[in-house]
Design a protein around this nucleic acid. Structure first.
Lengths: 343, 343
DNA sequence: TCAATTTTTCAAACCGCTTTGGATAGGCGC
DNA sequence: GCGCCTATCCAAAGCGGTTTGAAAAATTGA
C-alpha cells in the first residue's frame, strides 16, 4: 500500500540513512543522489509517517487546543470556529497537526496534563482565559510552550499571549458615545469572570469617570452572549425610570438582540438610540458594506488565530525564556447604529 | 520527567512485556502482579505515549475532521463548532484524539489523501457534503473508514452517513404552512450545491405540489446563510407584486434577518407574516422557552456529532462492508412566529 | 604517487511501545 | 516420581523513522 523509508531506500540501492538525509536536506549528501532520491520519493508516492518521525525525533509536530465547554450553560463560544480556522491555516503551512479536545471546564486542567504527559503535542493554545486563570501556572509547571488567546488578570508570572486591547476598545467606544452627548450608557457584557469581559468593563468605567458620568449598576449586565439575552437586557433597561440612550454590546449576537428590542419599542437606531458593539468579524455575521449596520470595535478573530499560531510555533521551535506578547488594537468603525444623544 | 514503560518495568523488576500486558488487561498475567503494576503505574504517573503505541499497533487512535472553508466566501459554517463539541465528547471517552484540518475546498481532497497516506488517522469525518461529492469515491478508493455528516445525492455506491431528514422536515414545515392557509410560501435556502439545501428544496417543492400550489421562482433564494442575506431576501420578496405570507428559513441566523425585515415593515410575526426556520440548536442561538420565538424544524447538531462519532468509531473498530446509516428526524416545534394566513 | 583530507555513504542503535515464540515453574493425574 | 498441562514471565524482533560513529570513495597537496 504505502511505501516506507526502507522500501524506498532498497528500491534505490541506498541505505535508509542516506535517503532520510537526502529528503531532509542534510548537506552531507551528493546533489545527484539527492535528486535521484527526491524523484523516486515522488514517483513512489512516499510520505513519511508522522508517528514514526515524531517517535524518533521526540517532537510531536502537533499543537493542542483545549476548548472549554462551560458546564453551566453548555455553550461553545462561536468565536472558536473562526479562530481555529485562522490557526489551522498556519499549522497546515508549517506541517503541524492541530489536535482538539473539547472538555467540560472542570476537567480542563486534567486535559492539559494528559496531553503533556502523553507527549501528544509540542505546544498548547489556551482559549477563553478567566481572571486569575489556573491554567497558566499549571502549564508553566508542566514546562510546555503555550500561548494564551487573551490574558488573565492577577497573574504576575510572565507568559506568552496575544490579545486585543479590550479595555482601550471599550474605553474609546464609551468616550465616543459620551462625545456624542450620551450620559446614560449601558454595558451589555459577557460573563465577567472571563478576562476579556472584565477588561471591557474597566475600559467602560474609566471612560465614564473621565467624562464625569457616575456609573449606574442598573445599566450594567453580564451573561452568556446570546440573542435573547441582548433582547431582554435592552427591553428591561429601556423600562427603567431613567433609560439609557446608548448601549455597548459585547458581541454581534448580543447586538442583534438589542436591535430587536429597540425595534419592538419603535426606536430607530442611530437616531433614537445608539448601539456600539464589538465585532469579531465572524464570517457568518458580517457587519460590513459602505456603512456597516453597527458602529463597532472591530478586530478579526480569524487573523488573531493566524497570529497566535505563528507565535506559538515560534515558541515551540525557538524556545526562549522571554515570553512573546502581542496586543492587537481594535478599530472603531462607524456604522449606522450611532448618533447624537436625543435631547 | 515522564516515565517510559521500560523504566516502569525496571522499577518493578519485571520485563516490559509483562508490564504492557498487565496494563492492557491480557489474561496471561498473575492477578497479584497486575495489581502491583497498576499501583506502580499510578504512583509513578505513567502514561503510555500514543505515538509509540500507535507505531507499534498500526492504529493511530485518532479521527480526522476536515473542515472545508468555502474559498468564495471564506465562511466557516457555524454548526461545526457544536458538531465538533459533540463528537469530541465521544472521542474523549473512547481514548481517541481528534485532529482537525481547515482547508480551502480546492485542497480538500489532497488533505484527505495526505491524512491517509501518512497514516495519521484511523477514520475520517466528512463535513458539508455537496451534491455528487467527490470525496465519497475518493475515500472509498483510499480504503479508510469514513462517515459523512449528511448525504450526497447522485452517488450510487453505498457509504456510511448520519443525516437529518431534511426533505421531510421542510416538507412538513411547508405543509404545516399550507394547512394554515398560506399559498405564497417563500424558501430562503442555503447554497443549493450543498446537499442538505437541495433536499430541503425538494421537500418544499413536493409539499407545494401536494397542496396544488405552483412553485414561484421569485419566492426561492439560495445563498450563504448570513443575517443580512435573510434581511435582504425578506425585504425584496415583500416588495413583490404578490408578496409571500410565509417564509421558510434554512437557519436561525437567516431567520433573524427575516425577522428584522418584517419588523422594519411593521409586520408582526405570527399574525401578519409567518416564519418557520430550521434550528440546529446551536448553544448560543437558543430558540427555546415555553413558547419558542420561532416555529422550527429542530434537531440538535451537537447530538448529531455525538452519534456520528459513535458510528465512526464503530466503523473503525469493527470493520464491516455493510455501511452504517442513521436518519434523525427533526421535530416540528410550534413557536410564536407562525399563524394562519392573513386573508 | 601516496598520505592526508574531505566527501559521501552505510551499519547499527535508538525512540517507546506491542507481540511472537519460547522458557520456567508449579500443579495435575497416574 | 514422571510426563504433561497450565499459568506466568521474558528475550527479542518489529513498527518507521532519525542519528551517531565509522568506513569507503573521491579529492587534494606535496
Amino acid at each position: 500500500m504505502s511505501v516506507t523509508l526502507k522500501q524506498l531506500a532498497a528500491s534505490l540501492g541506498l541505505s535508509p540513512t542516506t535517503v532520510s538525509r537526502a529528503l531532509n536536506g542534510f548537506p552531507e549528501v551528493n546533489a545527484a543522489t539527492r535528486a535521484r532520491v527526491r524523484e523516486a520519493a515522488e514517483r513512489l508516492n512516499y510520505h513519511p509517517k508522522p508517528r514514526a518521525k515524531s517517535l524518533a525525533t521526540g517532537r510531536a509536530q502537533a499543537i493542542g487546543h483545549v476548548i472549554p465547554l462551560s458546564t453551566s450553560h453548555e455553550i461553545v463560544n462561536p468565536i472558536f470556529a473562526d479562530f481555529i480556522a485562522g490557526a489551522g491555516e498556519i499549522y497546515g503551512q508549517s506541517g503541524y497537526e492541530m489536535i482538539l479536545r473539547v472538555v467540560a471546564d472542570a476537567e480542563e486542567e486534567r486535559a492539559y496534563s494528559d496531553l503533556v504527559a502523553r507527549r501528544a503535542v509540542d505546544g498548547v493554545m489556551v482559549h477563553g482565559p478567566r481572571i486569575r486563570d489556573a491554567r497558566v501556572p499549571l502549564l508553566d509547571s508542566l514546562g510546555i510552550p503555550f500561548l494564551v488567546h487573551g490574558r488573565t488578570s492577577e497573574i504576575t508570572s510572565p507568559y506568552s499571549w496575544l490579545d486585543i486591547n479590550n479595555k482601550r476598545a471599550f474605553q474609546r467606544a464609551t468616550q465616543f458615545l459620551s462625545d456624542l452627548g450620551h450620559r446614560r450608557i449601558a454595558l451589555v457584557n459577557g460573563l465577567e469572570d472571563m478576562d476579556f469581559a472584565a477588561r471591557r468593563r474597566r475600559g467602560y468605567l474609566e471612560a465614564l469617570e473621565t467624562a464625569h458620568i457616575p456609573p449606574d449598576p442598573a445599566l450594567m449586565r453580564q451573561a452568556e452572549m446570546t440573542e435573547p439575552y441582548g433582547y431582554r437586557a435592552g427591553l428591561e433597561m429601556m423600562r427603567l425610570p431613567q433609560p439609557p440612550t446608548a448601549f455597548l454590546a459585547s458581541s454581534m449576537i448580543v447586538a442583534y438582540g438589542l436591535r430587536r428590542a429597540m425595534s419592538d419599542l419603535g426606536l430607530k437606531l442611530g437616531r433614537d438610540i445608539s448601539i456600539v458593539t464589538h465585532d469579531d468579524e465572524l464570517s457568518y455575521l458580517p457587519n460590513d458594506g459602505d456603512i456597516p449596520m453597527f458602529t463597532a470595535t472591530r478586530s478579526s478573530v480569524r487573523e488573531a488565530g493566524r497570529r497566535a499560531a505563528r507565535m506559538l510555533l515560534q515558541l515551540v521551535t525557538q524556545p526562549t525564556d522571554a515570553p512573546l506578547t502581542e496586543m492587537m488594537e481594535a478599530a472603531l468603525v462607524l456604522g449606522a447604529s450611532t448618533g447624537p444623544a436625543p435631547k
